[in-house]
Design a protein around this nucleic acid. Structure first.
Lengths: 192, 192
DNA sequence: CAGATTACATACGCTCCGTACGTAAAGGAA
DNA sequence: TTCCTTTACGTACGGAGCGTATGTAATCTG
């Protein structure tokens, strides 16, 4: 089979990434083979291994993309919420809930990623992109240093579980509303 | 090779379960083969498949055992905390943190289980054993019905993440102490 | 325009899961 | 005791799927 130009190659890599995102989100990491991904992208496994190191490497790229999208939404919301650190924290947290439940991100980021990468490695990736902002925001509203990491972890855990709960709930709007209200109470406690 | 009596068979099943628990906790579900488990237990894969339906079935038994141990510790602590529902809730939650971080349970229950079973199925198993008590306790301290599930989810998520955080932290006692203090603040908010 | 490199496809070995089958001992029934 | 059935494994086999090695043609570079 012939070969494509540099631009086409980038397109191929992108197609693979999109197909992989859809399949991983729908079936989970373990239930998706690289043949599935290659077939959905219209290429063979050779192409996948050319653009990504391994199945885990491909998954890493998928997760990084989703993570980045969520983080962007959070930052935008926080910056658009004025200058009060408390209000920025609130806006960012609520935006996180909405962003991570809207995308096909929930399963990939919150279920499979820790298992595929191992928790410590996943934690580092998460910390670099998303949790940094939460940690900084909590520091900004006066959470004491010795409780900062523990507070960040528990708040992050609460939001993640809330996202999973929303995603699985049949009544979408009501569940989302309830989750946001509970999150406000939890937030109030964390920054009290 | 000869055959063992009924008592010996139960012992074999138990040995397999123990070996599997150790290996799954140490390396994670995906990185452990049934040959590894069989070898550690001193049998062949045939014995494993005789006592358990599949790799996932074996993992399910491992998770159920760990889950049951944690739940028992929580119930004992709650019952030993007097009759005040608030105090029972507090005692149960703190006992949960200690129990799940003490056992080799963290990785199995909080990282691999959701990925292996899928979140909804895992959620059902978890709800039956552990989260029921949390939900009942929260209802008992006056959390309104329309926020009960959301509160249960977020509190559970906060505790799970706290457990993972403790397990990964180099300074064990300090981290544990910080997590318990933050948990008290979160609890206070949830039941306010 | 010729060699080097890129962008794939193809082919192969290896690991590992699940199942089918074999087998020998245990636990009754006569 | 003796036979028969069932249990408790071990062994052997097929298939899926990952990763790597290799082939090949088009593109880029000088």
């Amino acid at each position: 089979m012939p070969r494509a130009s540099a631009a086409d190659a980038a397109r191929t890599a992108w197609d693979i990434l999109v197909s992989a995102t859809d399949l991983f989100a729908a079936r989970g990491f373990a239930a998706v083979s690289l043949d599935d991904v290659a077939g959905a992208a219209g290429v063979t496994r050779g192409a996948v291994y050319h653009h990504y190191r391994s199945k885990a490497g491909l998954f890493r790229s998928v997760a990084a993309k989703l993570q980045s999208d969520v983080a962007t939404a959070v930052v935008v919301a926080a910056e658009g919420a004025g200058t009060d650190p408390r209000e920025q924290l609130r806006a960012g947290c609520h935006a996180f809930l909405d962003a991570i439940t809207a995308a096909p991100a929930v399963r990939v980021l919150l279920i499979d990623a820790p298992a595929v990468f191992g928790w410590e490695q996943w934690r580092r990736l998460d910390a670099e992109h998303s949790v940094v902002h939460l940690r900084e925001a909590l520091a900004g509203v006066g959470v004491p240093d010795d409780l900062l990491d523990a507070t960040t972890a528990q708040l992050s855990g609460a939001m993640n579980e809330a996202a999973l709960w929303i995603a699985q709930q049949p009544r979408g709007p009501e569940a989302r509303d309830a989750a946001h209200r509970v999150l406000d109470r939890v937030l109030a406690a964390a920054i009290a």
